[in-house]
Design a protein around this nucleic acid. Structure first.
Lengths: 254, 254
DNA sequence: CCCTGTGAAGTGTTTCACAGCA
DNA sequence: TGCTGTGAAACACTTCACAGGG
């Protein structure tokens, strides 16, 4: 996550751990699927499997919300759907504005799952005057000059940034000034925001790089599993710098 | 994260903490920007600010890679760029296949930052025969029937899934069968994969729901900061179920 | 004297294992 | 008996604070 609010240093009481909050949407999705299949109750084991976590973790997570299960039986699906929805704030409607209607912004606007449960694309905003008025996913694009008005008129408190990286911080500042207090950033930039504003980021290239890291390990791992300590690492001639492996090449790779 | 590999239970030795791995791309990005501005060295404080973390964390992170800094001075930007790139496996080329060329898949294919450092879109795959041959971002879309061949011929080990949720698991299975061992999943589905396969997910609606959770708290927080224990929570009449607040409504909200 | 590198302390998260209730 | 709810142990991650090298 970027700079931003530090979610209250857990003053005890109503503090649900961040890790738990991040899993609630997963449980909710699994429960919604069960609900659609009219399954009345579910055990922690079954629900955990559907959500891709282990059952102890799930039970601990639910224990932070209250005692919503029945010993010997499991959880009432409908009841739990409601409780988690309420906890996540999805029983109300959240108007969202997307700023930057390029390929990605348009794709998000068209994304069906967006509207699911509580979220509504209230406005599309772009800096290109040529786009103003053009409908994307049935919603007319508005010009960035009117950002402030658009945000307040629609009561938007959640903004999605899909601009090029160079514009992201400026857009962020304007959104915050207009009253937005939660931002989902798709631009590959670190956003700085005042206290009280939440930023979450979605970053394709970071995810790929993390995968590449593990992928590389897998390749090197083949047969060399419990390898004995490799020979002492090469040390750079000029300075005393040392690392576990690999020295600086004469020519940097492009 | 979905089901998947458990990244070696930290057998000590060369084990870089997962949290550190997830930040390396952030450092790399900040360093690349400095490098482009021809900045020769940077202190942990400066670099941390640019990456949006605190300096103690950054120094600790770097300490897992080796001793790449100079006391009293800081870090050599070029040298560090190289070391982190190498650690992340970005000194080699990773051919990536995108499966599911709808709005999102096309947007990702067009996304410039994709090709940056080590990644190359090697193939676009879709199940719609009508799309076969159509170029997207200059790359012709191929039919899903040939998935297996496409993956092996291009030596793809990283797959990106941008299909509708219903198709995701099946596509995942086929990718894995074809030799893919890292998957980036954009579909809102829990994927199950065999051991040794990594899955990371990017999920818009989960991120929005997490933001909504905090957003809701902010709204309720106004002036009620150190509120004394609220009155005993209402208890559901029929059963002994109890939660911190809010009972089941007569009619579920749509 | 400045800034890195790192033990040690602190905090958060996961897992274990079982008491207790339906 | 079966499954939830939860203390307590184990583990992971972050922050502190300072020794020590350039």
């Amino acid at each position: 996550m970027a700079t931003g609010r530090n979610h209250r240093p857990a003053t005890r009481s109503r503090g649900i751990p961040e890790a738990t909050v991040a899993r609630l949407p997963l449980y909710l999705r699994a429960l919604t699927a069960l609900s659609e299949r009219s399954v009345p109750t579910v055990s922690s084991e079954e629900l955990a499997a559907a959500a891709g976590v282990n059952s102890a973790k799930l039970r601990k997570d639910f224990s932070y919300l209250g005692s919503y299960g029945t010993r010997g039986v499991g959880y009432d699906v409908e009841y739990l759907v409601y409780q988690i929805s309420r906890e996540l704030g999805l029983t109300q409607d959240w108007p969202v504005a997307i700023v930057g209607i390029g390929n990605l912004g348009a794709a998000l606007a068209n994304y069906g799952g967006f509207a699911s449960r509580g979220f509504r694309v209230a406005a599309l905003i772009d800096a290109d005057p040529a786009m103003a008025g053009t409908p994307v996913a049935g919603i007319p694009v508005q010009h960035a000059d009117d950002l402030d008005r658009i945000i307040s008129e629609n009561g938007v408190s959640i903004g999605v940034i899909t601009t090029p990286p160079g514009a992201a911080q400026q857009v962020c500042d304007r959104l915050v000034a207009a009253g937005v207090t939660s931002i989902l950033n798709f631009a590959p930039t670190v956003l700085s925001v005042p206290d009280g504003v939440d930023v979450r980021k979605v970053d394709l290239s970071i995810e790929l790089q993390i995968l590449a890291f593990h992928e590389q390990r897998k390749a090197g791992e083949e047969g060399v599993d419990t390898a004995p300590d490799p020979a002492a690492p090469p040390v750079r001639a000029t300075t005393g710098r040392k690392g576990p492996d690999g020295d600086m090449p004469a020519v940097m790779p492009a």
